[in-house]
Structures are given as structure tokens and as C-alpha cells.
Write a protein that binds this DNA or RNA. Structure first.
Length: 587
RNA sequence: GGAGCCGUGGUGUAGGGGUUAACAUGCCGGCCUGUCAAGCCGGAGAUCGCGGGUUCAAUUCCCGUCGGCUCCGCCA
């Protein structure tokens, strides 16, 4: 076997005259009859080989026979390319290797799609042949970035005294949260493990155990429907620390991200990150994960229009709702049809309608201006800093509906108008989340973050009186409108934890049954602690400027949670089922 | 659970009630000693996702179904 002495990208002008051996795949082949060029690809990149009968007849014959994706070894001399034949698009484009020996390790069928960047091919096909898809340079780069970032995170945390500790994959199913993936126990027929949705309980127990600073690159599993940024198994960078408060965590994370952006992308990001309270985020951006790469803040007009004789606004306000508006800059030029599209969108998001004012040089034009006095209109225009050419969009309803509708329109228009600079990275902390929200379906409170999140100390009395007003010691990190991390200071006292469980509608028996080990642990000296977890795939997706986390995962699942390559999931034999004591019911 | 878009040679697309199903690229063969999206010539390659219906006739229209993608619900 011809063993390689160099990788493709290592071949430089400094090596001219040197004999080298290269191993790799035939990327492309250009056959001139009497002279054959082959671009040889390995993980490092591409180098041009020259097969010439003047150099070696036997090697030339092999050059005639190889085809795309054949795996070959070649030996030959490095030479400068003749003047005028350099390829500036290629990193190794000034040199080439004259092959005097060649060996075919393995032939290859013609691949079902091109092994090159920017392929326009059905993703199903890419996933069925993922090992070919990953040969494409852009996919290889994604996995390289993933490696570099993961390593940078580990290095950073190691430097700061964190221990990476593994926690079980086979664990206990607990209520609350996402649907569990279950694993049947053979030894305990009829009983099941659950795959972890996150290592939450274990990392807290590691704090009880005195580990003080923990992290893990942890695989997590959630049996919920998929999205471009949601896979049934995904990776979290999970962290937890003892004897700390919010500021310690936020500061550490900012330094950590500055480190990985520098290491991974060579970018310097600005710290500290801005912070928004949950209320502020909802009011100004209509979402708890605002995209700060563009302005376009929502403006509250409730007080301004309170007395206006316009039923759409006044009924909403009387019902305890709000009136807010979005200044769609430059959208005054929108056609009737485009405005109809916006209205349809607003209705889809739950609005009862969409009022608008077109700010023209001749003054405001709109079906609704007749309801307003000149003075009020002027105040509205001023509040929205309206200029000629703007389109003002109004929504009147309950606060949550208005936020959702205008927040969605804000994003939709940003996409349509290309307001977003794709090179921007805009981080923002969202803090002061409510501790609880009311679930209409289940008729009970549910934790906004999770049941182990500590309320703010001064809000603890509210748990007895108005639990929905209590704020959590929780924080989310948002990057470019994507939630990339979230965490909290945890409850570390049994009484408060029991109080939380009871607020969530868990009976004392259920709490003991599901979380007894946790409550018990709290009785053996639990330090105050808190942490955060990052969706590593999402962070990487944003860093690589991709649209889907599937591009950052070597072997992801389709939207129906299956793997087109292995054909998982699949039925299993009766023998296997019998051993597990499982009978399959067909729906 | 719901909505939308898509499904035609290996790949990406065009087409549209009766066609020899078109184009590009890839593939195979021939020519070709400086290409790098090599070029030129020739060739092979498609039960138009699947099932049913309407029709004299369906790849085309209708219904269903499967698969992929995006989104809503869901994701503490």
C-alpha cells in the first residue's frame, strides 16, 4: 500500500521537487487524451494531479481508468504549475503533482448527487447517502466547526475549574416537560427507563455531592415534533455551579462565548450582552426571543387612543387589552395585495384584523383615519416616528395576542425586506421570566422554566397570594432571535421545592414518588446553586450561518423522526418483544 | 392533530387530456498534451411517488395515500 506522506493541502510551492505520496478520493477528472488532470480530495482539501505518459506509462493507464469518488493512492513529484495555468480558486492552485505511481484502493459507483458545495438536491437523498453528503466541503466544514467549538468550550471550562461529568442515559421518567423516549427494561418486565430530556436532576445532585463546578456535552432526548431547529436527540452544553448568583453565570457565559467565537470564527463579540426583562421583550418585540439585528420596535398606544371613538380599539381596551403598533418603514409603497397578505398573516396569528395607516406626502391614508381627531393622529405619527413612505400597522387585543401578532409581522417583514445583516451576531439576555403560567388545558399552573427554578426572594410571598406575579431567577440567552440557552438559580431547600411541586398540582405522594430522591438529597446539605444549558446544535447553526441544525449534525433525523439511511425506527422481532414483556397494539 | 409547498431519466428542472415526454448536467464510448464547470462528436438512460376515480384516452383533471420540507399546536 502506498501510504501517504502528506495531505492535499500540505502541498506548497516550498515542496517543489519533493517526492510525495497522497491518498484520497477522485474529485474531478479532466481527460485530454494525452494528458489527464485529476483533482484529488482528502479531508484537508484538493490538489491537482497530472497523469502523463511522459512521466509514467503505467500510472497514466490507471489515470485513464479512475472515475469520480474512486479511492486512490499516488506517488509523484511536486512541481510548480506552468505559468498561466495557475488556479487562484484553489488553495493549492500554484502547484501540482506529477504522478509516477498510482494504485486504486477502491472503485466507486457514480454518486447519486454531486460532491460539491451548494448542491440543490432533495434533502431526503442527502440523508439516505449521508456519508456522501458529508464528503461535501461545506458539510465537512460544519463538522470541523462543531469539533473546534466543542473543544474550545471544554478548554475554557477546564481552565475555569469545571469538571466534565457524565450522567445516565437510562434514567427515570418524570412528569413535567417534554414527552419522554422510553426504554423497556428486560430485567423488570413492564417497567421503563426514560432517556434524559436534560441532565437537570443529576447536575443538581452533583452540586449536592460537592462537585461545585460541573459541565457536560450532553445528549438530550425529547419525543416532540421536529422543526428546522429541533431534533429528537440534540446536544446541550450543560453547566451548573455552587455558591454563585445570576451575575456569576451571566459573566462566565459572556466570557465563554467570546472565547468560542474567537477560537471558532476569529470574531470578537461585544460583552457584556444587553439585557431585557421578559416584560420589556414582550412589549418592545412581541416575543421572549427578540431578534435585535434590526430595530422596528413595537409602540404601545393604549393610553393615547383610550378615549378615541373607534370600536375596534375601545372594545379591546375595555376588555383589558392593549393597542400597539409597528412602524413598517418604507412599506407605504405596498400594494393592496401586499397589505392583504399582511392582514391574512395577522389573522393567522390570532388577530381579529389589522388596521393600517399609509403615511403619504399628502397625509395619512387609511380606512381608519376618519375615526381619529387630527390631534390624535399627529400624536400617533409622532409616537411611531412616522415618516412619509411608512406603513403603520395596528393591533388591538389582549396583550398576549397583540404581542404575538405584531412580533410575527415584525419578523415576516424583516425577512421580506431583507432587514437582517447575516454577518451580525446580536446577543441578548432575557431575564425576570415569570415563574409560572396557567395552563388552560390542564387547568393548573405549569413552570415557565422548570419546577426547580427558584423564585426571586422578594416574590416568594406571592406564591401564596398571586403565584402568576412571581418572577423566576431564570435567564435565557438569545442570539439573532433564536433561544440558544437558558438557565436559572435553583431551589436548594426542601420546603420551597415542595411548595413548588404543590403549586404545580403535584400531590405530596406524587412528589415523593417522582422526586423523592431529590427532596431527600436537599436534606443533606445542599449548596445554593444554579446553571445554564446551551443548545449546542443551534449555537453552531447560527455560527455556521445555516438554516437548520440538521446541517450541524452528522446523522440527523427527518421531520418524521426517522433515519433514511438506517431506516430507523423499525419493527423488532417477536423474540425481542417477548423478552421485554411487550405486546404491540396496532392503532 | 392542523396548514402550506413539493414529488417527471442518476441529479436539477420544463411540459401538460392524445407528444417519439423536452432541456441542462451526470453516466458510457470515441477524438483530444495544460485543463480546472475542459472541449468536440456519438450513445444509453423515465412503469412521470403509489392507489383509486372521471374519460374513448390520465404523467396531465379529481379523490385518497405515502414521502420530504416549512410553519402552527407541542417542545418544563
Amino acid at each position: 500500500m502506498l501510504k501517504r506522506t502528506h495531505s492535499a493541502r500540505e502541498i506548497t510551492p516550498l515542496m517543489v521537487g519533493q517526492k510525495v505520496v497522497l491518498n484520497g478520493w477522485v474529485d474531478t477528472r479532466r481527460d485530454h487524451g494525452g494528458l489527464i488532470f485529476v483533482d484529488l480530495r482528502d479531508r484537508s482539501g484538493v490538489i491537482q494531479l497530472v497523469f502523463s505518459p511522459d512521466v509514467d506509462a503505467e500510472a497514466f493507464r490507471i489515470g485513464e481508468q479512475v472515475r469520480g469518488e474512486h479511492v486512490i493512492a499516488v506517488a509523484g513529484q511536486v512541481r510548480m504549475r506552468p505559468e498561466g495555468t495557475e488556479n487562484l480558486n484553489l488553495e493549492t492552485g500554484t502547484v501540482e503533482v506529477y504522478v509516477d505511481r498510482a494504485e486504486v484502493f477502491n472503485k466507486a459507483k457514480t454518486p447519486p448527487f454531486y460532491i460539491e458545495d451548494n448542491v440543490d438536491v432533495d434533502e431526503l437523498l442527502r440523508l439516505r447517502y449521508r456519508y456522501l453528503d458529508l464528503r461535501r466541503p461545506e458539510m465537512k466544514r460544519n463538522l470541523e466547526l462543531r469539533h473546534r467549538i466543542t473543544k474550545a468550550l471544554r478548554d475554557f471550562l477546564d481552565d475555569r475549574g469545571f469538571l466534565e461529568i457524565e450522567t445516565p442515559m437510562l434514567t427515570k421518567s418524570t412528569p413535567e416537560g417534554a414527552r419522554d423516549y422510553l426504554v423497556p427494561s428486560r430485567v423488570h418486565p413492564g417497567e421503563f427507563y426514560a432517556l434524559p430530556q436534560s441532565p437537570q436532576l443529576f447536575k443538581q445532585l452533583l452540586m449536592v455531592a460537592g462537585m461545585e463546578k460541573y459541565f457536560q456535552v450532553a445528549r438530550c432526548f425529547r419525543d416532540e415534533d421536529l422543526r428546522a431547529d429541533r431534533q429528537p436527540e440534540f446536544t446541550q452544553l450543560d453547566m451548573e455551579m455552587s455558591f454563585i448568583d445570576e451575575e456569576d453565570i451571566l459573566g462566565l457565559v459572556e466570557a465563554m462565548l467570546a472565547h468560542v467565537f474567537a477560537q471558532g470564527l476569529g470574531l470578537s463579540i461585544t460583552t457584556p450582552f444587553p439585557r431585557l426583562t421578559y416584560r420589556e421583550a414582550m412589549r418592545r418585540y412581541g416575543t421572549d426571543k427578540p431578534d435585535l439585528r434590526f430595530g422596528w420596535e413595537l409602540v404601545d398606544l393604549t393610553d393615547l387612543v383610550r378615549e378615541v371613538d373607534f370600536a375596534v380599539f375601545s372594545t379591546a381596551i375595555q376588555a383589558g387589552g392593549v393597542v400597539r403598533a409597528l412602524n413598517a418603514r418604507t412599506c407605504g409603497s405596498f400594494s393592496r395585495r401586499e397589505i392583504d397578505d399582511l392582514t391574512r398573516s395577522a389573522l393567522n396569528w390570532g388577530a381579529k384584523g389589522l388596521a393600517w395607516i399609509n403615511v403619504t406626502a399628502e397625509g395619512p391614508k387609511s380606512p381608519i383615519v376618519k375615526f381619529f381627531s387630527q390631534a390624535v393622529i399627529e400624536q400617533i405619527l409622532e409616537a411611531l416616528e412616522a415618516r412619509v413612505g411608512d406603513l403603520l400597522l395596528f393591533c388591538a387585543d389582549q396583550e398576549a395576542v397583540v404581542a404575538r401578532v405584531l412580533g410575527a409581522l415584525r419578523l415576516e417583514l424583516a425577512g421580506k425586506l431583507n432587514l437582517v445583516n447575516r454577518d451580525d451576531f446580536k446577543f441578548v439576555w432575557v431575564v425576570d421570566f415569570p415563574l409560572l403560567e396557567y395552563d388552560e388545558e390542564e387547568k393548573r399552573y405549569v413552570a415557565v422554566h422548570h419546577p426547580f427554578t427558584s423564585p426571586r426572594e422578594d416574590d416568594i410571598p406571592l406564591l401564596e397570594t398571586e403565584p402568576l406575579k412571581a418572577r423566576a431567577r431564570a435567564y435565557d440567552l438569545v442570539l439573532n432571535g433564536v433561544e440558544i440557552g437558558g438557565g436559572s438559580i435553583r431551589i436548594h431547600q426542601r420546603e420551597l421545592q415542595e411548595k413548588m411541586f404543590s403549586l404545580l398540582g403535584l400531590s405530596a405522594e406524587e412528589a415523593r414518588d417522582k422526586f423523592g430522591f431529590m427532596l431527600e438529597a436537599f436534606e443533606y446539605g445542599t449548596p445554593p446553586h444554579g446553571g445554564i444549558a446551551f443548545g449546542l446544535d443551534r449555537l453552531l447553526m447560527l455560527m455556521a450561518r445555516r438554516e437548520s441544525i440538521r446541517d450541524m449534525i452528522a446523522f440527523p433525523k427527518t421531520q418524521s423522526a426517522s433515519c433514511p439511511m438506517t431506516m430507523a425506527p423499525s419493527p423488532v422481532s417477536d423474540k425481542q418483544l417477548k423478552e421485554l414483556g411487550i405486546k404491540v397494539r396496532t392503532r
